[in-house]
């Protein structure tokens, strides 16, 4: 008999209103097969549980240093210093930290455990036309678990939305989208070479999956465009992208303007700031409005922020 499937989940968040229709609960899968330089959920990339340290919560008690068997934490008169390379993510320190400044990111959960958390939000879904959104990271990386979760959510009559980068084998994609009502599909850059520089992979597979999606009548889909100034926002690119999406039958698009709310999280995980992003700034309202105009002109109903 197969063991109960488990998924590595790093958050389940209620009262989300930018990740699909209505009031939703978002299940964040840990692990991503892309490496987008602008990613603001850095804790979502690795397929392993990770350690996060928050300076603002730390009370300088030093109990973590005492608990560490790998000399990865050193006491100091103020905040401890971390040797992230020495850390073996045994999480012993998280069990003694009184203020939860040290926390594990990512828990292995069964389908039932996830469903229990979402079930309690059902009353909010009912009135608002909301449901569960599967996001991350990239949920399709844990493809078997995702499917089991989608099927169970379907049995319980939840509306299911999937946020995905679309980079997975076509047959798998076909199977997974047969279990959702809405797909929120990231489109980052039309040019495959550029796409590879920015996200770690080219976009040909992604494009094929997008085409597949557009041919499916059953599933509603909305393209999502992360707007990164200087990277994918020049007018020609935006126009071409819009045209391409129109050809595929898209009627609307969500623009997600670049933000830097994840910078703090990077520090908490001990990640460096990617060089490429050091010169990228948050788009101004005017810039966003320009992009909206381009899409709207092409006949795509545009919303900003999801």
């Amino acid at each position: 008999m197969e063991p109960t499937p488990k998924g590595l989940i790093f958050d389940i968040q209620s009262f989300c209103v930018h990740d699909g229709p209505g009031i939703r609960t978002v299940v964040f899968f840990k692990g991503c097969n892309l490496k987008c330089v602008w990613c603001q959920n850095p804790e979502s990339i690795s397929m392993n549980p990770e350690l996060s340290y928050s300076e603002t919560r730390c009370i300088h008690c030093g109990l973590c240093a005492d608990a560490c068997s790998f000399n990865a934490i050193l006491r100091t008169p103020s905040i401890p210093t971390f040797d992230w390379k020495a850390c073996q993510t045994c999480m012993a320190c998280t069990q003694v930290c009184p203020s939860r400044a040290l926390r594990p990111i990512g828990t292995w959960m069964t389908v039932d455990e996830v469903m229990q958390k979402t079930e309690s939000d059902r009353v909010f879904f009912e009135n608002s036309g909301g449901g569960i959104t599967f996001s991350g990271g990239e949920p399709t990386v844990q493809s078997k678990f995702l499917q089991a979760l989608l099927e169970e959510a379907g049995r319980r009559k939840f509306h299911r939305a999937l946020e995905t980068n679309g980079h997975l084998p076509e047959e798998r994609f076909a199977e997974l989208i047969s279990h959702v009502e809405l797909v929120l599909f990231d489109v980052k850059h039309l040019d495959s070479k550029r796409h590879k520089n920015l996200a770690g992979v080219g976009n040909r597979l992604i494009q094929r999956n997008l085409e597949q999606l557009s041919r499916t009548n059953r599933v509603r889909w909305i393209p999502r465009f992360p707007l990164i100034p200087g990277v994918n926002d020049d007018t020609t690119h935006v126009k071409n992208l819009g045209k391409r999406l129109k050809t595929l039958g898209a009627r609307e698009i969500h623009i997600l303007p670049y933000h830097r709310l994840g910078d703090a999280k990077r520090r908490e995980l001990g990640y460096p700031q990617p060089d490429l992003m050091k010169c990228v700034s948050v788009p101004s309202k005017a810039e966003v409005a320009e992009i909206v105009k381009v899409f709207e002109h092409l006949g795509l109903s545009t919303s900003v922020g999801g």
Binding site: F15, V17, H18, Q40, T56, E163, L261, A264, V282, G306
Partner: peptide, 29 residues
Amino acid sequence: LLVRVAGYSAYFTGLPRELQDDIIDRTEH
């Protein structure tokens, strides 16, 4: 105090100062 943007969430007071200013700016607009 919550902060809510697409695919992201945090508590305002846990954010560093410059990000708080950014959110204040967003809120005003």
